[in-house]
Computed example of a mutant assay.
Amino acid sequence: MAQRTVLVVLFDAVQSLDVTGPVEVFTGAEKHTPGTYRVRTASLDGAPVRTSSGLTVVPDRALTAARAPDTLIVPGGEGSRHPDPRLIDWLREHGPRARRLVSVCTGAILLARAGLLDGRRATTHWAYCDRLARDHPAVDVDPDPIFVRDGRVATSAGVTAGIDLALALVEEDLDRDAALTVARHLVVFLRRPGNQAQFSAQLAAQTARRAPLREVQRWISEHPGADLSVESLAARAGFSPRHFARAFQAETGTTPGRYVDRVRLEHARRLLEDTGDGVEEVSRVSGYGTPEAMRRAFVKALGTSPAEYRRRFRPAPVR
Results as ranks from 00 to 15, higher is better:
56 T>K: 11
92 R>V: 07
1 M>T: 10
78 E>K: 12
275 T>G: 10
197 A>T: 03
77 G>K: 04
212 P>Q: 08
236 R>Q: 03
299 V>A: 09
25 V>A: 09
194 G>R: 04
305 S>N: 07
261 D>H: 13
167 L>T: 02
178 A>V: 12
282 V>E: 03
228 L>D: 05
117 L>N: 06
10 L>Q: 04
244 F>S: 02
5 T>E: 15
3 Q>A: 14
105 C>I: 01
35 G>M: 09
260 V>R: 01
191 R>S: 15
27 T>Y: 01
122 A>N: 10
82 H>E: 15
4 R>E: 10
34 P>F: 10
10 L>Y: 03
164 D>L: 07
4 R>A: 11
236 R>S: 01
85 P>G: 05
65 A>L: 14
97 R>A: 14
226 A>H: 08
176 R>K: 11
160 T>A: 11
29 A>L: 06
314 R>F: 01
61 R>L: 13
78 E>M: 14
3 Q>M: 14
136 H>V: 07
118 D>M: 07
183 A>D: 04
61 R>C: 12
27 T>R: 13
89 D>F: 09
18 D>V: 04
224 P>G: 09
289 G>C: 08
185 H>P: 00
177 D>H: 12
310 R>P: 10
201 A>P: 05
109 I>G: 08
29 A>G: 04
232 S>V: 01
230 V>R: 10
263 V>Y: 09
214 R>M: 11
295 R>I: 01
8 V>S: 09
81 R>E: 15
41 T>R: 06
230 V>H: 06
213 L>F: 08
227 D>E: 04
243 H>A: 15
102 V>A: 10
10 L>S: 06
209 R>H: 02
228 L>F: 06
71 T>L: 15
30 E>R: 06
239 F>A: 05
188 V>Q: 10
244 F>Q: 01
98 A>N: 05
290 T>F: 08
108 A>C: 04
180 L>M: 11
103 S>P: 03
318 V>R: 14
230 V>E: 14
190 L>S: 02
82 H>R: 13
235 A>L: 11
134 R>P: 00
30 E>N: 10
168 A>D: 11
166 A>H: 10
207 T>C: 06
291 P>V: 03
80 S>I: 08
110 L>N: 09
271 L>G: 07
